[in-house]
Amino acid sequence: MSKGLAAKNLTLSYGSSTIIRELNLIIPHGKITVLVGSNGCGKSTLLRSLARLLKPRKGCVLLNGKEIAKQSTREVAKQLSILPQSPSAPEGLTVLQLVKQGRYPYQTWTRQWSVEDEAKVNWALQVTQMSALAEHPVDSLSGGQRQRAWIAMTLAQDTDILLLDEPTTYLDLTHQIEILDLLYDLNVQQGRTIIMVLHDLNLACRYAHHIVAIQNQQVYAQGRPEDIVTEQMVEDVFHLKSLITTDPLFGTPLCIPQGKGKNNGKKSLTATGS
């Protein structure tokens, strides 16, 4: 594979605890890939390693055909950007100041702030609908606005690959859909490769071209949502019985988890789904 991200025999650990073991993975270029799995399965750890934020114990990550560990930080930062989970900004930092940080990989002693840098920052603010809030402190914004500001920073970095760790965490349903719609548009209109960790399996099915399910330190299954999201997969990966039906709006898999609810478990899933 010469373009995009891949993992080869990747083993990741924190101290003596192994999180991912001998994992092999190819991220489809120009598509939206979502990592799913139960809490603690290693999704975020894997994402950090793909971004060269965590050194493998064994194996390697390949970025555009080359080992990412052998590339310079500046070189990597021009090819991929990452939005970590729950990022924080210094008190009083404005949206504009935050977004400008996305251009730091392009600054050198011989190349200072340029017209191109200014254009990229303005474009990132515009596409995320944050231009009107450019002079507002980041810590004064709502959750959805803050997330848009951070996404604007990653966009200003102008990379072909975007990695996002739970970009919808702590957001209400409206803001979740707004953020995912924004990322979907970036993929469709600009061909950006987007890799996300999401907890909501139904949203993952709705937005992803490719899903990677992590279980027991390995890839349990990967492929189109329609091909891999089954009742057996949900039970094995999430330890949950469910009914898989079809989303009436999008035609993607829709997971209905088994639970007691108001009927105290008296009606079967099969009956309620028929």
Rank of each mutant, 00 (worst) to 15 (best):
S2V: 13
K3Q: 15
G4K: 06
K8V: 14
S16D: 13
T18L: 13
T18H: 06
I20D: 02
I26R: 02
I27S: 03
P28F: 15
V34P: 01
L35Q: 05
R48Y: 15
S49K: 01
L53W: 10
K55S: 10
R57W: 04
K58W: 09
G59E: 03
K66N: 10
K66D: 09
A69P: 01
S72W: 00
Q79C: 06
L80N: 02
P84Y: 13
P90C: 10
P90A: 11
T94N: 08
Y106V: 05
E116N: 13
E116K: 11
D117T: 07
A124D: 01
A124Q: 06
A134T: 00
L141Y: 12
S142E: 06
Q147S: 14
R148M: 10
T154K: 06
I161N: 03
P167E: 12
L173A: 12
T174Q: 08
H175G: 07
I179H: 06
L182Y: 10
D185A: 12
Q190I: 05
H199I: 05
A208I: 08
A213E: 04
A221K: 14
G223N: 05
T230N: 05
V234L: 11
V234N: 00
H239L: 13
P248F: 15
F250M: 07
I256L: 15
G259T: 08
G261H: 13
K266Q: 11
